[in-house]
Amino acid sequence: MCAGTVEVADVEGSAKGAGGWFSVSRARAVYDHPFHAQSDEALILDFANPERGAGSRLAVELSADSARELVRIIERALEAGQAQHRG
């Protein structure tokens, strides 16, 4: 941790990584120095399963604007999708 504080949430779901699908139980978000994204800072988002070891991790590094846009489309998709599936 260089500058950012990691926000953590318990989640239920699955993610697909290099080794195929795995169940995820933890989401992490921190705005800090990225490893791969071509920017000085990025929103680093992890989907992980700590019980399966450090390697059970799907990682994304997004610009701040991209991260906020992601939040917006998740909210829109949830609202529309849940309404549709409720009938």
Binding site: M1, V6, V8, R26, R28, V30, D32, F35, I44, D46, A48, P50, G53, A54, G55, R57, A59
Partner: peptide, 19 residues
């Protein structure tokens, strides 16, 4: 001690723990 694993994946565990 947080490994073994890819250094970046292990680092994510260390970040979550507070360094």
């Amino acid at each position: 001690r947080e490994g073994p694993g890819d250094p970046e994946d292990v680092a994510a565990v260390v970040r979550e723990a507070g360094g």
